[in-house]
Design a binder for these strands. Structure first.
Lengths: 343, 343
DNA sequence: GTGGATATCCAAAGCGCTTTGAGAGGAAAT
DNA sequence: ATTTCCTCTCAAAGCGCTTTGGATATCCAC
């Protein structure tokens, strides 16, 4: 059924060399010949054998994933979404994955083993922390990588794709300020993750520019599950001077926060404004909230796909991608934001 | 640094053939020679080149995963946990993954492509539905597979690993009945999934044996996120004749249910009893609930690991595993169950 | 017409492993 | 002593691709 290079070459009356070169875009092959080859590929359905390519080139055509287990990270809803993006793009290029579950304290050994195994050409990294030790480690191992997010402190010259979290939350906060809000709460992700730190920074910056400060009492950090959104919001509302607006680091958190607000009998968009960061989770669309949510939007899946593209591009040496990308989140205003009450 | 077979053979003064055979457990090699070979492997740190093995054997040493996207399945917390188990075992045998995100209506084509690509030796299947079309499809494609769960109806002769969900929920219900409960509610997973159907069946059976029937009003089906557990429980409690006991298909659902119960000012274990199915999610331990939860327990991660073992065993032809396994969940009684009130 | 580019193409080696088909040596059987 | 049969080992042939190092032909300038 499936033809191989040798047969294909025979059919075409060419040598394997020429056919191979035609397929891999080498210049020393006549344009017309290349067309003939491409045509034959279409007709025969020829697909190069990955195992043979791997052996011949020494490339693994695979990317490594270290999944932190028991850390409440991999199992979270955001991980699956990101992974879907990665996989979506990888499957197009017939790239495979080597999944390595690893306890956090065993991560270094895992990376080391992975790099030494020769089973992957590159790895991907996420859940960045300040001064993340994995960056220097991977540099030392000299295995290509792309990180999703950015560390804070430490080396700056490494490939990443990040959302401009500071900017996003700065923008969001600014909008709230313009609407007259002064007491603004933040329900953030875990405080040890870089993106949370940056988001908080964005809020602080906007407030400072406005001549205000961030009330630390109005900042909560937690795993991004809606339970925590609920609890945090509930806490805030029990204060003598509850906030008139709240920023959530995820629509998942917002889900809980909204529930707490409803339960308190307050009206979203008038009594209290809500803005959430939207990772574009297909299950949780901000426009489907009872009161559609104002969000800062940046698709997690798109980020996954982009990182896969860059990783793969780097491996097959095609395409020239920027080493560092900072995506700007869009601020999308819906009904959950309104003027501060009593204004 | 890394030695290959040829060099290893040279060091040992043996031929590649002999060394290869010694390593792969062929009988026609002297025990002493085999020991020498194994020793040399230890000393040199020799690791066979997977790409070469793949080419030589025609095996892919990889397993295929079709992740349904946009279905609220892959992103769910249970998927990550299962995947961790799969990966944990696979990494030991240096098996890789081919992740194929696929829209539900495109699944057949995805499997077909995957099988034809030769990139995987076997695939894994989950989220079984009644008369699941994927089973006959994979049989027709004649690619080895193992399913997690079981279909209902359709062919019966396929390899699976399932938890005896009927039994588990039968056991749990029986306990509640013995404690004097009559009005028992069920917060179940999606009604189109086989495991949900079986769990409900277990509840029904126990009630019937006791001379009671299942009140359909006290059964809710939903995605297993705690939000839904909350809502369902709230609904139940608003009834004129609320249940005195509730069964939850996941600790995630129980989380929400517990919240609703607390909010209603009821005491768990006395006013109302709760039993949940525990997939052993590291983030959500039933013993850590404010009132420790009685559960039917069966580790999802262990199931993942076991399936990987069977899949891999089938591929490398080592080990002889049963085609069908039905794990019995353990019923673990903690403080969330007690006698029915007023008894 | 000749030397030297230039453009196309090819034969063959090699990637690191498994596996086939045989051979050498010794023990057992005749 | 010869034959037969194991036991253990090996040389060599692939697996299907990439890539090196030429060939061959064409074309140009001189």
């Amino acid at each position: 059924m499936a033809v191989n290079l040798k047969q294909l070459a025979e059919i075409l009356g060419l040598s394997q060399t020429t056919v191979s070169r035609a397929l891999n875009g080498y210049p020393e092959v006549n344009a017309e010949t290349r067309q003939r080859v491409l045509q034959a590929v279409r007709e025969t359905g020829y697909r190069p054998n990955r195992a043979a390519q791997r052996l011949a080139t020494g490339k693994a055509y695979s990317i490594g994933l270290v999944m932190p287990i028991a850390a409440g990270i991999d199992s979270d809803i955001h991980f699956g979404e990101f992974l879907a993006g990665l996989a979506e793009e990888s499957v197009k290029h017939d790239f495979h994955f080597v999944l390595n579950p690893s306890a956090p304290d065993d991560e270094e050994a895992t990376f080391r083993r992975l790099a030494a195994s020769g089973n992957v050409d590159a790895v991907f990294l996420a859940y960045m922390r300040p001064n993340d030790p994995r960056i220097p480690m991977l540099k030392a191992l000299s295995i290509p990588f792309v990180v999703h997010g950015r560390s804070i402190g430490g080396p700056r010259d490494y490939p990443f794709l990040d959302v401009d979290n500071t900017q996003a939350f700065y923008d969001a906060t600014k909008l709230l300020l313009q609407l007259g809000h002064h007491r603004i709460a933040l329900i953030n992700g875990p405080d040890y993750l870089a993106f949370s730190i940056r988001r908080k920074k964005g809020v602080t910056r906007a407030l400072t520019e406005w001549g205000l400060g961030l009330d630390e009492e109005l900042v909560h950090h937690s795993v991004m599950a809606d339970e925590y959104g609920y609890r945090s919001m509930q806490h805030f509302l029990e204060r003598p001077d509850p906030p008139t607006a709240v920023l959530c680091s995820s629509t998942v958190l917002a889900l809980g926060a909204v529930r707490a607000i409803n339960r308190a009998g307050l009206a979203i968009g008038s009594d209290i404004s809500v803005i959430a960061h939207d990772d574009v989770l297909p299950m949780l669309k901000p426009e489907n909230f009872s009161v559609p949510l104002t969000t800062t939007r940046s698709s997690l899946r798109a980020a996954g796909a982009r990182i896969a593209t860059r990783l793969i591009g780097g491996i097959i040496g095609r395409g020239d991608y920027p080493e560092q990308e900072l995506w700007r989140a869009e601020l999308i205003v819906r009904a959950s934001t309104g003027p501060a009450p009593g204004r």
